[in-house]
Amino acid sequence: MHTALFWFLAAVSVISALGVVLQRNPVHCLLSLIVTLLAIAVMFIGEGAIVVGFLQAIVYGGAIMVLFLFVIWLLNLGVEIGPTGHIALKFFGTLAVAAMTAELMAFMLPPHLEVKYAGHVAGYGSIDSLSQKLFSEYLVAFEVTSVLLLVAVIGAVALARRTSASEIAQNADDSARRAQGAS
């Protein structure tokens, strides 16, 4: 990838990431997050990891962000006005953020994290090499993830399921009988 292009995309993603944190309107924050994710997707594509880039655009930029927008709109969050919370919360919050940043810096700054760039191996970033790895070397992790997602789907259905009228009547009967027994 061209260096100038990299700096441009890096600037876009950092500025929009700051926008996520600093803006007051939650919808504006979310749209900034979409810009961040799309900029990172373009970076992936520029580095030759085309499949990962497009999957990021489809999954994060498209589907998941839309679900987030739904949640925010249906919960009807207003514009956050002014600082909220106790002064102690702010104090300890700032401390925690500083500690976190220091920890991240200790990991990220050289010489701990040297850029190890092996160059493009054959078939780098193509869907063939990705699926070869996914279905041979990382098969167990892949299958465990799919089971986890299945559990999440079933859990969501169980939570969202409406109780039918007969079940409500049954529950009312039970509690009435229990109340009688107690008296």
Partner: peptide
């Protein structure tokens, strides 16, 4: 002729939904 052409189609047409939601809100 991208080697992920049809995936690209799916990815970029997914942007519509953000625009439509944005217009609605």
């Amino acid at each position: 002729d991208l080697n992920v052409g049809i995936l690209y189609m799916t990815a970029v047409t997914a942007i519509t939904v953000v625009g439509v939601l944005m217009a609605g809100w």
